[in-house]
Every structure is written in C-alpha cells, then in structure tokens.
C-alpha cells in the first residue's frame, strides 16, 4: 500500500506548518502556499508525513491511499 500527500487548495490557508515538518516533500511557493510532491511517500518519511498532516490547522493536507 502506498500513500500520497494531497492538499486541498480550497481549504489551505498557507499556514506553512507542513513545509516545516516535511521539507523533503513540501516546499512553499512565493505566496506561502505548499507545493506538494505527489509521489508516494517513502517509508522513511512516513512519520514526518503523518506529523505534517496532523499539524495542518485547516485539515487541508491528507494522505490518500493509492
């Protein structure tokens, strides 16, 4: 089972917590909104990905099974 990070851009307000917790897969654009790597989350980053998801204040970041 692989999981991918998906951001709901409508909910996202650009708090930026996710990029601090998972810089390997999430960077912020020049307006502070996340650019998310849509590839499957490697096992080594699984914990950080979960932390990033739960840190999102607007519930915009999710891990979707693919």
């Amino acid at each position: 089972m692989t999981e991918r990070l998906v951001v709901n851009p409508i909910e996202c307000d650009g708090h930026g917590a996710c990029a601090e917790l998972l810089p390997e897969m999430i960077t912020l654009d020049e307006w502070g909104y996340p650019i998310v790597d849509g590839r499957p989350v490697p096992p080594a980053l699984d914990r950080d990905a979960r932390a990033a998801v739960s840190a999102c204040p607007t519930l915009a970041l999710r891990l979707l099974r693919s």
């Binding site: 307000d13 708090h15 930026g16 601090e20 502070g32 204040p57």
Partner: peptide
C-alpha cells in the same frame, strides 16, 4: 494559529 500569527523564535508547527 492564523496565517500571520507566530511566536518569536518558534516554528509554526
């Protein structure tokens, strides 16, 4: 916890 709200010296998360 808003877009602007930050504590000095602390990351957002």
């Amino acid at each position: 916890v808003t877009r602007q709200g930050r504590l000095p010296g602390l990351p957002r998360f």
